[in-house]
Nucleic acid binder design. Structure first.
Length: 266
DNA sequence: AATGGGACCTGCGCGC
DNA sequence: TGCGCGCAGGTCCCAT
């Protein structure tokens, strides 16, 4: 479940590890993850080019290449980038000029690898709403005031605000003491302020700890991120709320498991 | 128009 | 023991 903090962590890890290295060869073990162009073309496009820069847009990784093109990676739910890779579970393996491999692993094959001339032209990217760190309190208040959806679903809507998924939506709502099922437009100005503040706090703290390793996410090194032990609600069903000592509950909301504290979140 | 639910996949853990 | 089922949750697509 890589969300903004996990993708940001991998982006920073990549910058330290693979910048200016050349892709010597690409091995494709499952072509399903290659989108838009055929696997043979994908291999040819990458052979011999250097990795020039890495950026992140919401949950998407964009790797700038010396050819002027971009390797655009969406990890979706179980995607991993591992370097040096062991090629054990890899779907696509990039052999680099240092003799090591950068592996793309993805248990569920939802991940997406693309080569694009212009990454900004990707439809998904164009439809993305603003990232939380680019929003002012006034922007956020105005955005919420028009929406009749449940607040948690809205936070996960990438066209509304980008980078937040199921885990950080839950943690942010707990931080702001807001119940996940509240109608967005019903939040008071004070609650909206608390929510944007909580989102920024939770995301930046998660980045500091290298993201949350639940299920599949690992850092580039293959090691887990450490934010899980700072979770207040996610994955803590039945455990005690760290604020009020009441039990954390789990409910289904929009088909997603939703953790919250019924006593703290109103 | 906005919203909700199913589909896309695989592997794990659970109950019988 | 083994099998089938539900669940994990990012995004797209379709129906309402």
């Amino acid at each position: 479940m890589p969300e903004l903090p996990e993708v940001e962590t991998i982006k920073r890890d990549l910058e330290k590890a693979v910048l200016d290295k050349k892709i010597v060869e690409v091995r494709i073990y499952n072509p399903m993850v290659i989108r838009q162009i055929n696997p043979e073309k994908f291999r040819k496009e990458l052979a011999g080019v250097k990795i020039k820069n890495v950026r992140r847009k919401a949950k998407v990784l964009v790797i700038g290449l010396s050819s002027g093109k971009f390797l655009v990676i969406h990890l979706k739910m179980t995607g991993q980038l591992v370097y040096p890779g062991d090629a054990k579970n890899s779907r696509v393996s990039f052999l680099l000029s240092d003799g090591k491999t950068l592996d793309f692993n993805d248990q569920r094959l939802f991940g997406e690898l693309r080569i694009l001339d212009d990454w900004r032209s990707l439809k998904f990217i164009q439809r993305l709403g603003p990232e939380p760190f680019d929003l002012s309190q006034d922007d956020f208040k105005e955005m919420l005031s028009r929406k009749k959806t449940k607040i948690k679903s809205l936070l996960m809507d990438q066209t509304f605000i980008s980078g937040i998924g199921n885990l950080y939506a839950a943690e942010s709502l707990f931080g702001a003491r807001i119940h996940p099922e509240r109608v967005a437009s019903s939040l008071s100005d004070k609650e909206k302020e608390a929510l944007l503040g909580a989102i920024k706090n939770v995301l930046s703290s998660a980045i500091t700890y290298g993201g949350s390793s639940v299920d599949n996410y690992v850092r580039l090194s293959g090691k887990p991120g450490d934010y899980v032990r700072h979770h207040k609600v996610y994955g803590r069903e039945g455990k005690l709320c760290l604020v009020c000592s009441g039990p954390i509950k789990k409910m289904m909301l929009g088909g997603r498991g939703t953790y919250f504290c019924p006593r703290c979140q109103k």
